[in-house]
Design a protein around this nucleic acid. Structure first.
Lengths: 116, 116
DNA sequence: CCGCAGTACTTTGAAATGTCAATTGATGTG
DNA sequence: CACATCAATTGACATTTCAAAGTACTGCGG
């Protein structure tokens, strides 16, 4: 994505991470407490498993979330996802978005609304 | 995207807007001052004109940016894009991202880095 | 006057990305 | 045992973004 022009600006990189689809939703859901896979899928509202798995791996690689696999006894594992300290500090970003949204995005028409 | 589950949460909608590719970059560039089309394209760093046009239209529809077409004299028009008050208040969001980025994203490996 | 550069886009087709539906394999419930 | 749930995985499909080229117009140098 040619990060060269800015001389490697952290903000540029952060935007690159946060604009990925579902990322902010995932963080927001996890800010509310750790969750399992399907639970998280429902919380973010409609992300499918393929995308979610992928996003989760990416966020784990960036150390924003942590995956803890509790082995109940056998092989089955309930995976629990939670935020790392770095991830939790995204609360500030979510809050900023929340503040802005409540002020400026309350009555705006939505293009993705059910037209039919 | 099924906005139904949250009962129409403004934060959910805001995230939907802000996670669109280049949106945050565009806002950040415009926060620095109004810009023409090509100028803006260079400032955001690598967005192609088709996408930029589309994003700009979307953001204008959402009243986050304003397009002013200065007709020099004939038909030629230099379009100048600037933030509306609502758009300018995204400064808070950009700041939050900036703060977070400087603290947690300075040395993180980048998955999009040239692997070869 | 002619061509080159710059303005703001639009068009094209291909590539990247995201989504869906079905499926897997394990486990617990009726 | 059939069925639902959990955490994914797979492959087809749809959408999004891409780079490059083209359009239409102006201003500048030669």
């Amino acid at each position: 994505m040619s990060t060269a022009h800015t001389g490697f600006c952290p903000v540029y990189r952060a935007i690159g991470v946060l604009q990925e689809k579902w990322v902010l939703h995932i963080v927001r859901a996890l800010l509310d407490g750790e969750k399992g896979f399907n639970e998280l899928a429902r919380a973010v509202g409609g992300c499918n498993s393929a995308t979610l798995t992928q996003r989760l791996e990416h966020l784990e690689a960036l150390a924003l979330i942590a995956k803890r696999t509790e082995d109940t006894q056998g092989k089955l594992a309930r995976s629990v996802y939670s935020l790392t300290p770095a991830g939790r500090e995204l609360q500030g970003v979510i809050d900023a978005i929340g503040t802005w949204a409540r002020e400026h995005l309350s009555e705006t028409p939505v293009e993705g609304a059910p037209t039919a």
